[in-house]
Design a protein around this nucleic acid. Structure first.
Lengths: 150, 150
DNA sequence: GTTAATCCCTACTATTTTACTTGGTATTAT
DNA sequence: ATAATACCAAGTAAAATAGTAGGGATTAAC
């Protein structure tokens, strides 16, 4: 019941881009450093995100990546689906899969996985990168407040 | 974002046991046949469930397995945790893990996975084997009703 | 007390996935 | 011209997955 490092790192990288949104292209190198990730590995992940239209790239020196849409308009679910494939705890609740299980209409265990799927999607599609930036701001303020009074 | 066949098949097998609860020990062979699973592979899964105290075994001819507790008292989450390990989309939200991420208190992406984790647990811990049996009954009645009127 | 049905246990294995690394080429600001 | 970047293809070690193989121990039924 795990996601792979692709989804994990990918969300970190996109969050990093969101935190620097409006500051021009952000290089992979700087993202990799801030998030302590392998730059070359990130490269592969962001290639997928670019092909999916979630980020735009700027080539050449001082180039980098920019979110293709407003942080409010990119949900964590969008990122996870690109990097991990369809959100479906078992294959038989994957709507994109052509060969569905025969018994799907009668299958009771399938109902369980369907509910799990829906609950995951509800969470991931309700959180935008902008939400995460707001959380980060709040966390920073709390930290500053705490530091001040100690 | 998948569970493995262990969790998948394991829930099927336990559901099968629940549907035959009160009928004495149920053999792996019959479960494997009804659910179209490899008997030998099931054996490995149910060994874990037995060690975890979710089923009891009866050895010898006419032996088999029986739920160790009432179907109302076994949640799908119990089964999944035994067969898949702790429910945690990424390691850093696994409470059982001794080596947690340093930045966990400040980490914003971690909050996302924490929410995913909670929502999965909420679903899996809210569904008992008895619930599934009731669903199966309802589905059967609907099917019979439909057949009658066609 | 023999037999057949069952659970129990250990080990092996082919395939796939994961998490990268290596080693380049193409593009562009300075 | 140079250095900083994005872009691309291939290789790889380790782990996980989804089983299989083969046999031993226990017990109901005859």
């Amino acid at each position: 019941m795990k996601i792979s490092t692709k989804g994990h790192y990918g969300v970190q990288a996109m969050f990093d881009l969101a935190q620097h949104y409006g500051q021009g292209p952000i290089s992979l190198k700087s993202i990799a450093e801030r998030q302590s990730l392998s730059e070359h590995y990130l490269e592969q992940l962001i290639a997928g995100l670019r092909k999916a239209g979630l980020v735009k790239s700027v080539r050449g020196a001082q180039g980098g990546y920019i979110l293709a849409r407003d942080p409010d308009d990119i949900k964590v679910g969008d990122i996870v689906r690109v990097l991990e494939g369809p959100i479906a705890p078992v294959e038989c609740v994957n709507d994109d899969d052509p060969e569905q299980c025969m018994k799907s209409e009668f299958c009771i265990t399938r109902n369980v996985w369907e509910k799990v799927k829906e609950s995951i999607e509800e969470v991931l599609d309700s959180i935008s990168l902008a939400d995460m930036c707001r959380d980060a701001e709040r966390a920073k303020m709390n930290r500053d407040f705490y530091m001040y009074y100690i």
